[in-house]
Design a protein around this nucleic acid. Structure first.
Lengths: 251, 251
DNA sequence: TCGAATTTGTGCGTATGTATC
DNA sequence: GGATACATACGCACAAATTCG
């Protein structure tokens, strides 16, 4: 019949040792050659087994150092709903306060960046139109948990006090509040979550394994006249964050 | 310096030939040995290149038959918002009608299934409590595009006309409408989308490549007294569906 | 109907690169 | 700088699936 392939047997073996606390979170495993010899399999079989467990978040491989038992890290809850848009403060800070986590973010804004094709389509403007681009790294307890790149057409905010999302008197207030300051009422947001693997750069920024799973959210805010006024690409690593949508039901 | 590894060069080569319409969607590629000889690389290098393109949805491998150029398949838009819950008809049918697609689904209901641990937690009931479990396969134009397994506590619907989601006078009306019939008002839903790879069974049911990316949504409906009355695991294949959340902003 | 040839898919080994200590 | 260990690339052998005579 179908007997288990060696690398799955080794994976179970490793999993069991972790469950039995032979190896604790943070411990370094013996080298692959050592495990292979002990279990009577080739070095490569051990590698396959470890790769499987790494992809499941059980182990963690560090080049040049060794393979470690992953530390169970509490996942940050990212709530996305209408209730999240408070009159004061940024949505992200609301999320973090609820968890009693130190929240912070770093950002870099570039003014008058020509819109790439996809962004232009999402904003309903011509390709190359000037935009204000802001990239964010959101931190929870000092660790990066979320990346975001926001695009606002210069035609909407240009020449106003809120042209820079993270500058001026309304810095960090969130898109909805900032737009309200210049008379733009945002009526709704559209979010399109899509699963994919992290790029090498994203993995490095988020402190996750290369090619780990992330949710890539394309978010667009629309004003009450139906025109898009901001769009963002948000990258949420599955290992560290759980995304929650709250949907009110009206009948 | 870092020169491109052979398998990436071959991947680009293959990609280019598809872009140049040397190979059209649906065509079968030459065998790996043939491509390898033609490009002056080993058979395995071609395999790696093809695996890469398969994981990106550009190619499609069929065991024993060959490697094919993937047919571009229009993605179904799955809208998830409060506006979707109409007084009549099921949410899924609303989605499909908007696309002028033939919509349909198959379902199988099992009554009095003991709740597994995770489901019990989500429903706020004890493990093993009886539930009505219904599994769905949603189809668009005859092709499966979405899987769902729904759990309702027997304590909520037991003994009423709506105990069977797909039976009785309110069959297929959707959870919100069915619950309304027995005086249970649903106030909101919570959805938790999580990226992961498809299981072998899911891939087979959805007609997608093994281990293709899916979004696994854990959805729970809450009644106006704050108690969960239904929860479901929904599997949406990224290759065939785009998920859209519409979030109203109230200030 | 059946079986042989072809092709993809999987498991595993080895050589080399590269990061860490 | 050297030793160690993980990461990557590549090759071979075999199994599974399909196709076709």
């Amino acid at each position: 019949m179908s007997e288990q392939p060696p690398y799955l047997r080794i994976a179970d073996e490793l999993r069991q040792r972790i469950a039995e606390h032979v190896w604790e979170p943070g411990d370094r495993l013996p080298s692959r050659a050592q495990i292979g010899q002990e279990c009577g399999v080739g070095e490569n079989v051990v590698r396959r087994a470890q790769e499987l467990l790494i992809s499941q978040g059980v182990l963690e491989g560090r080049a040049g150092s060794g393979t470690y038992v992953a530390e169970p890290r509490e996942r940050v809850r990212v709530v996305r709903s209408s209730a999240r848009e408070q009159p004061s403060g940024s949505p992200f800070r609301q999320d973090m306060k609820a968890l009693r986590l130190q929240s912070d973010w770093e950002s870099r804004t570039d003014a008058k960046v020509p819109a790439p094709a996809e962004i232009a389509t999402r904003l309903g403007i011509a390709e190359g139109e000037p935009c204000v681009r802001t990239t964010y790294e959101f931190l929870a307890d000092g660790k990066p948990v979320q990346l975001s790149t926001s695009w606002e057409p210069y035609a909407v905010t240009g020449g106003t006090l809120v042209v820079l999302p993270e500058g001026g008197p309304h810095a960090g207030a969130g898109v909805v509040n900032r737009m309200a300051e210049i008379g733009v009422t945002i009526s709704h947001a559209v979010e399109q979550p899509e699963p994919r693997h992290a790029t090498a750069e994203e993995a490095s920024l988020l402190g996750i394994q290369k090619a780990a799973l992330v949710t890539h959210i394309r978010r667009t805010y629309y004003s009450d006249d139906g025109r898009p006024v901001e769009t963002a690409d948000i990258v949420v690593p599955a290992a560290h964050c759980e995304i929650v949508y709250e949907i009110p039901i009206n009948r």
